[in-house]
Design a protein around this nucleic acid. Structure first.
Lengths: 348, 348
DNA sequence: TTGTAGGCGTTATCAC
DNA sequence: GTGATAACGCCTACAA
C-alpha cells in the first residue's frame, strides 16, 4: 500500500462526468453556446436552448467547479480555522457560520488545529482554496494573518486579538465579567478563585482582568488564575487540587462551562455541596450548563450569532460591499442559576 | 447593493499572489523547472533549485489549488453532508472526521441541511468540489446517492440505510437496545413508553424495533413510539404531555439524550422525581448526560470513531486501495447511571 | 539538466 | 444568434 497522502498518479477525474465539449457535440453547437444557454449570459435561440438542455439532461452534465472557478476567478468557498473542534462552543459557532455562508452561496471548508504543529502552513494552503477565511482564536500568528491580508485575502478574526486590516467579531467580556464578579460579591463571597488561564491573548485574559479589577474594587484580592486544561477533565483535576487545600475558596469562577462541570464533579467527589459549601460559575452557557445540578450560573455567549456575523462580515469583504475593516462586539448575558448560591433563582 | 449571491464580475483573483510564471521569470528559469523544483518531481541542478526557492520566498508564492487540482485531476478535498449540525452528536462525529481526513492530506468541506429544501442540488454541487463524500443520515435520497456512485464518486454512508455500492459506517443498535430494554425490565418496569420516532430509516427505527421485541419477550407490550422533535424542547413538550396523562408510564425510553434531558425538565416541572416516580433513558451519551441530575442512563455511541472510520473508508475508496463497498458496525455500550432507577450505580 | 507545448474544463470577448 | 479562441494556473510528457 503506497503512502496515502501521496498524489494519485493518473486518475483523470473523468469519472466526474462529461465535459462541456461533449454536451456541445451532442447538441450540435459550440461550447460557447452551451455555456450561454446554461448561465443565461447571452442570447440563445429557444430551439437551440432546448437542444442544449436536452443534451445536458441526457449526459447528466454538471459543470466542473474547477473549471468554473478558474475561469471566474473565484472559489465560491470560505474557510474557517478552529483552535479545536471539540466542545459545544465551537460546534455552535460553526453551525451559525455554515448556515449563513451557505445561504450566500459559499461552501465552507474547515480546518481544525487539534494539536497540529504545521498549522501556519495549513492555513496558507487553505487560503489558496477559498475567497476569504475566518480565523477563530489565537492559533494563527499575527504575522501570518497580516501576510494573508497583504496578499489580498479577506480575513475575519473571531474571538481573538485584533490585527490591523482584519475584521473582528468578538463577544463582550469586560462588562459580563464585572457583572458576574459583582454578583458573587453580592452573595458575600470574599475568597474567590479563578480557574483556567488564557491560552494566548484570547477572551479569557479580558475576562479575568475585568473580574479581578471588580473584585479589587470591593476589597477582594483574587489570587492569580489557576492554569488548567479547558475540558471537563481539566476542571475535575484542578477542582480536586483546589478543594483539598487547607483553605478552600468560597467561590470558583471558571473560564468556561466545561471547567465548571469538572469542578462540580470534584466537589461531589469530595462530599462538598454546591452552592452551600462552594459557589461555582462557568462561561458560555453550553447545553450541559442548564441541565447540571445544581444548574450552572454562567455567562451566555451568542455562539451561533458569532458564527453568523463572521460569515456576513466575510462576505462583505469578499464582494467588496465593504472595504475597510470593522470590529464588532456582541453582547453577552449573565445567567444566574443555582450554582452560585441560594436565592430566588430563575432557571431559564 | 447588488445581490450578494451574484458572481463578482471581474475580480481576477490575482489578489491571491503571484503565479508560477512570475516565479519563473524572477528565477530566470522556465515554469517547468519551478514546478519540478517545488515538487521534487524531476532532476534540478542544486544551483537552479536555490534560485527558484529564493524567488518563491521573495514572492511568497503558493501554488494555486485550482491550477494544481485541474492539472492533477483531483481535489484533495472531501465533503461531508449533515442532517443538522446542531447538537453534540454531530459535532463529535465531525471532529473525528476532520482529524483523520486532514491527516490524509484532504480538506473537509461541510454541508449542513438545516431545513434547506434544495439539499439534493447542493449535494450534487458539493460532489463537484470533492474527490468523495460522506453522507450522514437520511437526508439524501437513495436515488441521488446511487447517481453519485454511478458517476464514479466514492460515497460513504454514515448511520443510514445501506445503498448498493456505497460504504456504510454505523453503530450497533439492536444489541444495545435489547440490553437497555432488559435492564429496564430488570428494574421491574412493565409500563414503558418510547419517545421519538424515526425521521426516516435511520438508527432510531432499528432501536425501537429491537427494544419492542425485547419487551414483548418479557410480556410487556410497548405502545407505539411517540413522535416528537429530537431536541431538548421537543422532549420537554412531549414529556409534559406524557406525564399529564391519566396513567403515567413507569419508564420512558428516549430516542436520544437531548430528548431525555427535556423529559427530565418536564418531570421536574411537574414535581415528579426521577427515578423514584419515573425512569428515563437516553441514547448517545453526550456530555450533558453525565452531568444531568439524575445522571442519564444511556447508550454510548463512539461518535468520534464513527467520523474517523468514515474518513478512513472514504480514503480507501478514493485512492483505490479498496474497490468493493464495505459495511462496518461499531460497538455501542450501555451506560447505567441514576436516571433509570435506584441501585448500585456507577457513574463513569 | 532544462525548456517547449499541450491539456485540464470553464467563461467571456470578439468577430461573423 | 453563434462559433472560434484567448485566458485562468498548473503539471508533465517530450524535445533539446
Amino acid at each position: 500500500m503506497e503512502a496515502l497522502t501521496h498524489r494519485t498518479k493518473k486518475v483523470p477525474m473523468d469519472q466526474h462526468g462529461p465535459t462541456i465539449y461533449e454536451v456541445a457535440r451532442r447538441a450540435g453547437v459550440s461550447i460557447a453556446t452551451v455555456s450561454r444557454a446554461l448561465r443565461g449570459t447571452g442570447p440563445v435561440a429557444p430551439a437551440t436552448r432546448e437542444k442544449v438542455l436536452a443534451a445536458v439532461k441526457e449526459l447528466r452534465f454538471t459543470p466542473s467547479r474547477l473549471g468554473v472557478s478558474l475561469a471566474e476567478g473565484r472559489h465560491a468557498a470560505n474557510g474557517i480555522v478552529f483552535p479545536d473542534l471539540s466542545g459545544p462552543y465551537f460546534a455552535e459557532v460553526l453551525l451559525g457560520y455554515e448556515e449563513v455562508a451557505s445561504e450566500l452561496g459559499r461552501s465552507v471548508i474547515i480546518l481544525s488545529r487539534r494539536g497540529r504543529t504545521d498549522i501556519q502552513a495549513q492555513v496558507r494552503e487553505l487560503a489558496g482554496r477559498v475567497d476569504g477565511l475566518v480565523v477563530f482564536g489565537d492559533i494563527v500568528d499575527d504575522a501570518v494573518v497580516a501576510e494573508l491580508i497583504a496578499a489580498g485575502t479577506p480575513v475575519v478574526l473571531l474571538a481573538r486579538t485584533p490585527v490591523e486590516g482584519a475584521d473582528l467579531v468578538a463577544s463582550e467580556n469586560t462588562g459580563s465579567a464585572r457583572a458576574l464578579a459583582e454578583h458573587l460579591i453580592g452573595h458575600g463571597y470574599r475568597d474567590v478563585a479563578l480557574l483556567g488561564t488564557p491560552t494566548g491573548d484570547d477572551d479569557i485574559g479580558e475576562r479575568w482582568a475585568s473580574a479581578a479589577r471588580t473584585l479589587a474594587e470591593h476589597g477582594v484580592a483574587a489570587p492569580p488564575p489557576v492554569p488548567c486544561a479547558l475540558t471537563v477533565e481539566g476542571g475535575l483535576e484542578a477542582g480536586r487540587a483546589l478543594l483539598r487545600r487547607d483553605s478552600v475558596p468560597e467561590a470558583v469562577m471558571c473560564a468556561d462551562d466545561q471547567l465548571a462541570l469538572g469542578v462540580l464533579l470534584a466537589a461531589e467527589e469530595l462530599g462538598m455541596s454546591v452552592p452551600d459549601n462552594l459557589a461555582v460559575t462557568g462561561w458560555d452557557d453550553i447545553m450541559a450548563a442548564r441541565h447540571a445540578r445544581p444548574a450552572l450560573t454562567t455567562v451566555r455567549q451568542p455562539m451561533r450569532e458569532l458564527g453568523a456575523r463572521a460569515a456576513t462580515a466575510l462576505d462583505q469583504l469578499i464582494t467588496g460591499a465593504r472595504t475597510t475593516a470593522r470590529r464588532q462586539t456582541l453582547a453577552t448575558e449573565l445567567v444566574v442559576r443555582a450554582s452560585c448560591g441560594a436565592h430566588p433563582l430563575e432557571d431559564q
